[in-house]
Design a protein around this nucleic acid. Structure first.
Lengths: 108, 108
DNA sequence: ATAATTCATCGTATATTTGCGATAAACTAT
DNA sequence: ATAGTTTATCGCAAATATACGATGAATTAT
């Protein structure tokens, strides 16, 4: 397998993803979304040991990084993984770590 | 393939790694170390568009995160990937993204 | 209409990150 | 000894991140 070099743009995109992944609370949120398709903000507030406003802020950062997306479902908001960017992130990290992900298991 | 859930400790370790990866300069440094076994600090200073002290600081962060290690080679310092922790990071990210890395290409 | 629920945003405080120039430390070469 | 090379660290400034309580916005239930 030939290691594919990442361009500067790709490294910047990956850094943005990595930064978003760089906090335990945000990783926990993502892990829950990976397990069970979608969650409401309140679900995370129940689990996480921080205030509701703090959870909301972490959600916002994941949303800004493009890793999740929200769907308003009054009075709740349902969050899901943004599959397109999630796959992009997966590809960037796999490239970076020199992992062949083309044959990896598909979650569908 | 069954998705392996990551423990809180693992998520914290992964967050520390991700945080270290969350800057383009640090990704560039790591990519260079991946390509060519080892580098001196000066090699990075030549490439990167920031001051020497800034490069040194980014190197320190990668070292603190355990992703690289330095070997004093007076008056220079030679840096290499810390393979043990690199593999640990690779495993954590692959688990997180649900990628099967057990059969991935080995760089040796 | 009023109250309750859910969530984002604001304002604030504190901590961390980022970047720089200047300086110090360690060693080599002259 | 003196000067040069390489790198880390210090001190500083500015920006960003983290966390909280309070408040506001949107909607549902009474």
């Amino acid at each position: 397998m030939i290691k594919k070099l990442q361009t500067e743009k790709e490294l910047e995109q990956m850094a943005r993803f990595a930064k978003a992944l760089g906090h335990p609370i945000r990783l926990t949120i993502l892990q829950h979304l990976e397990k069970q398709s979608c969650c409401f903000t309140g679900d995370f507030v129940d689990i996480l040991p921080v205030a509701q406003s703090t959870v909301s802020q972490h959600i916002k950062e994941l949303k800004d990084a493009g890793l999740i997306q929200g769907e308003i479902n009054p009075p709740k908001v349902k969050y899901c993984i943004n599959q397109e960017n999630w796959d992009k992130a997966k590809a960037l990290f796999c490239d970076f770590f020199d992992v062949d992900f083309t044959n990896s298991s598909c979650s569908i």
